[in-house]
Design a protein around this nucleic acid. Structure first.
Lengths: 345, 345
DNA sequence: ATGAAAGCGCTAACAC
DNA sequence: GTGTTAGCGCTTTCAT
């Protein structure tokens, strides 16, 4: 590591070795700093000769613009904050990936904040994240504490809430109705003749919404008892295994189990097999998410398909429109969902 | 959205509504801005009464520090950049997650850059990322273009290269030897009696290292032909299926296949089953990564376990030590690996 | 097409 | 323990 403290000519201790700045590039190119700034941000406004001289200077010095300074001066950080429950969950990672790719085309960088599925973490995270002065913010979910909403609104930047919809978004919402998912899955299973039901779920607010609707739909169809297992907010195969064990301790087979994710569903399937139970005969299973392994479990997983890439893209487009002061035609985008009937239910 | 342009009292058009600044908090608390800054960064150096007055002022104004300004003034952004091939790959996501958690304890925020497995993307990404003036940088892999190395070194910040090791790191390396993995897997399979081999691999430099060593070890054991299929840099189940199809077009069963990831391995397994081939009898399979589903495929996947969380933690610790000017005892950390023998090989 | 001046919001050195 | 002064490196009027 190069040493970072040097003595300046004036004898004062500086923090960093004097690095290449806009000014040093300007001196080298024989122009004013302003002109270099223009060459970088509005090259069309600089004479071709000047431009190439500046570009040479940049290349020969290895100048890297300081976006902390640029952002401070212009009040535009070219940063977009994204708050997600977990980056180690493919479902969110794929949305973030498509979102990131799309906004990068317009020169924005995305930085992530992870709540770790802790609802209280969001409040603190929002402050941390706003302190970087993002130009826009991407949130997961539509439930935020009052303080949170207030801070978010006070920031005065475009906001997109994702993975859920609401008639009253903070600004823009891109997602689907979890309640409709719950109703649809209940109807699907009931229509296929299932009469005993269970829910194997991660303890996450959106999963709860689906489960509540699932139970409500079944109640309407005369089924008043739905065993539900909530073990942890983090989806895992292990959680699915334990959930099925829980359900079977309370209810008999055959049972139809609605899971909060495909990973949990895979765990349910594994546990069923370990107990010598067949799917769908003894344990019917519906997953959620349609991750890429869902089609390849044995038997193949019936699940609810969510278009994660579209959520990312539509969110990006909506935010970019706001940032460009373009009209946003619809501020609530429902990307829908689809039940993919495979073998487990 | 609140409007962003307002007319100031002096009649000049400002970019943002005058927001709450350190200065306004200071005025409210009846102290100098410096004191507020101190209250925030070195609260122990401020009198208790003053401190609480300042905290009240902060609370009542909803002040959120501007870290662009703070970073510019102090030359410490409290930002760490992490460059990864893909965020939608659990293997990297889990490392980043543990890394992020660890450095956050020391007040750093991590922002990600994604190369999309494109080796040329790194060069451009490094510049983009350095323009945010991170205090340290986390890289995936040890292979970087000359320009890249130079820019990285010129930044004068701590660097950790991960997922591989080298005797000559840019600064610090935390990973394991891919070549040793290749040799070990070859030995493992050969020792168990396999004599026909194939490689189903994503086209990624670290996978290539493993494959080369795998082939070399087998050559030493008298096996001079190892069919290898490279189809895409992105691991997917589909890629595994196509890879096995490729291999079987060139070689007969029984075959032992070394895969570049568990996902690819699962694809190989699925394809084998689709063709009515049994594992390990007809197609022996070794995966890579030991992801959580590996123990639950049928038959369960034999694979190479990598401790992704440890890579993240050790990287974080090394970087934090550098940032605190503490001595880093070892600048090359080998976290090792382990072959997990299950059923497919 | 280019430059001079002012300032973004904060921290750091130094004095008191 | 607190305040004063001087920037950090850039962008933005406004003038030429």
């Amino acid at each position: 590591m190069p040493t970072k403290k040097i003595e300046n000519s004036d004898g004062r201790l500086r923090h960093t070795a004097r690095s290449v700045t806009l000014e040093s590039v300007a001196r080298l190119a024989g122009v004013a700093p302003t002109t270099v700034s223009r060459a970088l941000n509005h090259p069309e406004k600089v004479a071709a000769k000047t431009l190439s001289r500046i570009q040479d200077a940049i290349a020969s010095t290895g100048y890297v613009p300081n976006l902390l300074a640029g952002g401070l001066a212009s009040s535009r950080s070219r940063l977009i904050a994204a708050i997600v429950p977990s980056i180690a969950n493919l479902v969110y990672a794929e949305t973030i990936q498509s979102f990131t790719r799309r906004v990068r085309e317009s020169g924005y960088q995305v930085f992530l904040g992870e709540t770790g599925y802790d609802p209280d973490a969001e409040e603190e995270l929002v402050v941390t994240v706003l302190s970087r002065r993002p130009d826009a913010i991407f949130l997961t979910g539509i439930h935020h504490s009052a303080t949170c909403r207030q801070r978010l609104l006070a920031a005065g930047i475009p906001i997109v809430e994702t993975w859920d919809i609401t008639p009253t978004p903070l600004d823009i919402a891109v997602g689907f109705s979890h309640s409709r998912v719950g109703h649809s899955v209940a109807a699907y299973l009931h229509d296929r003749g299932h009469r005993t039901f269970g829910v194997a779920s991660a303890d996450d607010p959106r999963a709860r919404l689906r489960n509540r609707a699932f139970t409500a739909e079944l109640a309407e169809r005369g089924i008043d008892k739905v065993e539900t297992s909530y073990l942890s907010p983090v989806s895992s195969l292990e959680l699915g295994r334990r959930a099925l064990a829980d359900l079977l301790a309370a209810t008999l087979t055959p049972i139809a189990v609605f899971c909060s994710s495909d990973t949990v569903a895979q765990g349910v399937l594994v546990e069923a097999q370990a107990r010598g139970l067949a799917s769908p005969e003894d344990v019917a299973i519906v997953g959620f998410g349609d991750q890429n392994f869902a089609a390849f479990t044995y038997p193949a997983l019936t699940t609810v398909k969510i278009d994660r890439v579209t959520i990312g893209e539509r969110s990006a487009e909506a935010l970019l429109a706001r940032l460009d002061d373009e009209p946003v035609e619809e501020n609530v985008v429902d990307v829908g969902f689809e039940i993919i009937a495979r073998q487990t239910a």
